[in-house]
Amino acid sequence: MPSNFFARKRMNTLVFCVLLVVLTLTAITITEYNVVKGFTSIPKAAEWAISNFYPNEKAMKRLPAIANSLIETLLVSIAATTVSAVFALLFAILGSQTTGVGGPISAVSRSVATLFRNIDVAAWSMILLFSFGQNVLTGYFALFFGSFGFLTRAFMETIDEVSSSSVEALRATGASYFAIIFQSVIPSSIPQLLSWILFMVETNIRQATLIGILTGTGIGFLFNLYYKSLNYSAASLVVIVIVAAILLIETASNSVRRVIL
């Protein structure tokens, strides 16, 4: 019996690998992608980057403006994440299998979360551009909607995983719905909820760069402006600042996670 199981598992793995190779070759054929040329161009691209894409003395004079745009991007990302987390928690409680009230309310909560989660923030940006134009508010709402969908789903799974046993115990004692939420669900789930919020902050800071290119705001706008004007030295400085900020925030986030989890 075990030998049949492992043989079947190896066969499934082999079939999956063959299917993946077939799909890859099909995609290469359809798109007419030259694999050899793609790999051989890597050294030339690296040589160009080393020769042109680095900050010089003139680019360093733009550091204050880059820092101000970075701060704006960070603040928008954090604000969009924290506000969306509040709404996500409400929808997660209503849609959770453990704490949901059932019926159409739970179904609507899950449907709204699924809709918002499956639309990328870049798509949200383009949709919102028609309503708000190129400004900070467009980027904020794009990050807010994307964060709301992701966090609602993550919060639902966290509540169902962490709080099911304690909720059942409180229900057996006749506790009210709000007592269960505030005395069991939120206290037991809050470390994982905070971890998801920190993860979303990191993700939004990365995505805010792309959002800035689309909405003409923040650090993304500066990178797009410098790159299109062929000011590669300033554009490279923007990239370095973004990478440094993300690494610092990720380090701080990991430290917080180790404390709360």
Score class of each variant (00 low, 15 high):
Gly133Val: 07
Arg117Ser: 03
Val101Arg: 14
Asp120Pro: 14
Ile78Ala: 12
Ser125Asp: 05
Ser106Ile: 02
Gly139Asn: 06
Ala80Phe: 06
Val112Trp: 04
Thr81Trp: 00
Leu128Pro: 12
Thr81Gly: 00
Val86Tyr: 02
Gly102Trp: 02
Val86Met: 05
Ser109Met: 05
Thr114Pro: 07
Ala79Asn: 11
Ser109Lys: 03
Thr114Arg: 14
Ile93Ala: 02
Ala122Tyr: 14
Asn118Leu: 13
Pro104Val: 06
Ala85Ser: 04
Leu128Gly: 13
Val83Tyr: 08
Val112Leu: 10
Thr81Pro: 00
Gly146Met: 06
Ala122Lys: 11
Phe116Arg: 09
Val101Gln: 11
Ser84Asn: 00
Gly95Trp: 06
Ala92Gly: 07
Asn118His: 14
Val108Trp: 06
Ser96Tyr: 08
Phe87Ala: 01
Arg110Tyr: 00
Phe141Ala: 05
Thr99Asn: 07
Ile119Ala: 06
Leu143Thr: 08
Tyr140Trp: 15
Tyr140Cys: 14
Thr82Leu: 14
Ser111His: 14
Leu94Thr: 06
Ala123Gly: 08
Val112Pro: 05
Leu89Asp: 01
Ala79Arg: 11
Phe116His: 12
Thr81Tyr: 00
Arg110Thr: 01
Val121Gln: 02
Asp120Ala: 13
Arg117Tyr: 07
Gly133Asn: 11
Ser131His: 10
Ala88Cys: 03
Thr98Trp: 00
Leu94Tyr: 05
Phe132Ser: 10
Val83His: 08
Ala142Phe: 13
Phe116Ser: 07
Ser84Leu: 00
Val136Ala: 15
Leu94Asp: 01
Val86Trp: 03
Leu90Gln: 00
Ile78Val: 14
Ser111Leu: 15
Gly95Gln: 07
Val108His: 03
Asn135Leu: 06
Val86Phe: 08
Met126Ala: 14
Arg110His: 02
Ala85Met: 02
Gln134Thr: 07
Gly146Tyr: 06
Ile78Phe: 09
Val136Ser: 15
Ile127Trp: 06
Arg110Val: 01
Ser131Asn: 11
Ala142Glu: 10
Ser109Gly: 06
Gln134Asn: 03
Leu94Phe: 09
Gly95Met: 06
Gly146Asp: 05
Asp120Val: 13
Ala107Ile: 14
Ser125Trp: 10
Leu94Gly: 05
Ala85Cys: 03
Val83Ala: 12
Phe130Glu: 03
Ile127Pro: 05
Val108Lys: 06
Thr114Val: 13
Ala88Val: 02
Ser131Tyr: 13
Tyr140Lys: 15
Phe145Pro: 05
Tyr140Asp: 09
Asn118Gly: 15
